[in-house]
């Protein structure tokens, strides 16, 4: 067995039924070389304090449940390792910019509403009926959107985005990246419907190009790039609207 050491994990605690304000609680956790922060939290829950509350499921960085702040950085706790912090203590907090439901579990309803708002599904053109055959799409055409289809909805980018922190009306990085994922898909013809979301003040123009979202994204989705491309699209759309008013195309 690998060698066991001990690390102090300091967790933000908040219980809406009993606490007026969040506070911190520290736990001493034995850990081995391969233990993740998530496994540290599980150790606490199983053996030290069953009240500590956090979300997790896949423990392999694909379900997007376990995002939290570790020493002020938004990370997936299942692929962040205790060894990288030892011997210093670590501080674990819920993802920034979201209301806290309890301890490390945040309220994700605002994000889910935003995800729904971008029409995140294929909208084929009216004449397009593939019948019972798959459509064609070359590997290059797949590459045009595949990167943006990697989002696991972990919300790290929202926790990193200063704009979302200031104004949560901003549609935000992941939802806009998803919007772009469908716009960039050769099988899709729904751009116009999505343009309203893009053009709105809370759409791409809410972004001030800080780029933190792409820095923290564990799946290399690059939301900043998606937003930027849509700023160009939005500008074009703005001018086009003078030339050919909507509805008369």
């Amino acid at each position: 067995m690998s060698q066991t050491r001990t690390i102090v994990i300091e967790c933000l605690r908040f219980h809406p039924e009993t606490d007026e304000a969040p506070y911190y609680q520290s736990y001493e956790v034995p850990f081995t070389e391969e233990m993740s922060v998530l496994e540290g939290l599980q150790y606490i829950k199983d053996h030290l304090d069953g009240t500590l509350t956090f979300r997790w499921s896949c423990r392999m960085a694909i379900c997007g449940s376990c995002g939290c702040m570790v020493n002020d950085e938004p990370v997936l706790s299942c692929q962040t390792f205790l060894r990288d912090y030892h011997p210093a203590r670590i501080r674990v907090e819920p993802l920034a910019h979201f209301p806290i439901l309890r301890d490390l579990a945040i309220d994700q309803t605002d994000f889910l509403a935003k995800l729904e708002s971008v029409h995140p599904y294929l909208i084929p053109s009216t004449g397009d009926d593939p019948g019972d055959q798959p459509r064609h799409q070359t590997p290059d055409q797949v590459q045009d959107y595949l990167g943006y289809a990697q989002c696991i909805n972990c919300l790290l980018c929202y926790a990193a985005c200063p704009q979302y922190g200031l104004n949560d009306a901003f549609t935000g990085p992941a939802a806009l990246a998803l919007l772009h994922r469908y716009n960039a898909d050769s099988r899709d013809a729904g751009k116009d419907q999505r343009m309203e979301v893009i053009n709105a003040e809370e759409g791409v123009w809410g972004c001030t190009l800080v780029g933190e979202c792409s820095e923290v994204c564990p799946k290399h989705v690059d939301p900043a790039r998606a937003i930027n491309q849509n700023k160009i699209a939005s500008t074009q759309d703005y001018f086009l609207r003078f030339l050919k008013p909507r509805g008369r195309r």
């Binding site: 599904y121 294929l122 084929p124 593939p130 070359t138 590997p139 055409q141 797949v142 959107y145 898909d185």
Partner: peptide, 12 residues
């Protein structure tokens, strides 16, 4: 048809 990004051969 719903948009799943299936891996493709060169010919699509």
């Amino acid at each position: 048809h719903w948009g799943c990004p299936w891996s493709r051969q060169d010919d699509g």
